[in-house]
């Protein structure tokens, strides 16, 4: 066993990837070589640190949300009504699990205008894909906080002329009924930016008697690729 061999195999030694006789040979070498012994310790320390890099569990709604979004986009582009129904029902299912969107609700009253507030600065937009159409697909995240759950609230989204929700091509206004959960919630909207320009995404929440409106900019000042 040489130091060179030890250097080449120390990674595998630490991870236990070697057969026993090779492990023993490397260990025997390290017991007689101070620099290789130090290298072994360094590698063990590194592996300990790497193993500590755990992956956090996804949000509880992760699978159901992604499933809902996928199933919502399954219908042909000319079947808008069915698509709306599917998407809305999927979103409703997701919301029923308490994930989609929340809002600031007052401690005692449930009156919408007084008690609901958006969360400035919690909106993020990022380009995530380039659809075949040449439009630019962005994910716009709307983040809200709700102090209490609310059922049967109508959520309406209004998009600027140069944008459309990916599952609903050609539509700038979409509404559906949702159950809002308590606490922090994020809505990730897949939005196609059809042509350069910027505009506002407006979201209305309506409990049947009163309405609260939020808006956020959709940056679309990049040239869509052709």
């Amino acid at each position: 066993m040489t130091c060179r061999q030890f250097h080449q195999e120390v990674d595998s030694l630490v991870r236990g990837d070697l057969p026993l006789h090779e492990q023993e040979a490397l260990q025997a070498h390290a017991s007689t070589c101070a620099s290789c012994s130090e290298l072994w310790e360094d590698e063990q320390r590194l592996q300990k640190g790497i193993m500590a890099q755990t992956v956090p569990e996804p949000n509880d709604d992760f699978e159901s949300r992604v499933r809902a979004m996928a199933l919502a986009g399954e219908t042909p582009r000319n079947s808008t009504l069915r698509k709306t129904s599917l998407w809305a029902s999927s979103i409703a299912a997701v919301l029923a699990l308490g994930i989609f969107i929340g809002m600031q609700v007052g401690p005692a009253d449930t009156g919408l205008p007084e008690d609901i507030a958006d969360a400035p600065g919690q909106t993020a937009t990022e380009t995530v894909a380039e659809p075949e159409s040449g439009a630019e697909l962005k994910t716009v995240r709307l983040a809200f906080n709700s102090r209490k759950a609310m059922d049967n609230v109508t959520l309406t989204l209004e998009l600027p002329p140069n944008a459309e929700l990916a599952p609903f091509p050609g539509r700038q206004t979409i509404s559906w009924t949702v159950d809002l959960k308590q606490g922090d919630n994020v809505l990730a909207l897949p939005i196609n930016v059809l042509f350069p320009g910027s505009g506002k995404l407006v979201a209305h929440l309506d409990d049947g008697t009163r309405r609260k409106t939020f808006s956020t900019a959709i940056p679309g000042n990049t040239e869509p690729s052709s």
């Binding site: 992760f62 949300r65 992604v66 996928a70 990022e126 995530v128 990916a166 990730a188 897949p190």
Partner: peptide, 12 residues
């Protein structure tokens, strides 16, 4: 999560 969502929607 967003990355997975994009890919799954795209793959569906």
């Amino acid at each position: 999560e967003d990355l997975v969502q994009d890919v799954v929607v795209k793959m569906y």
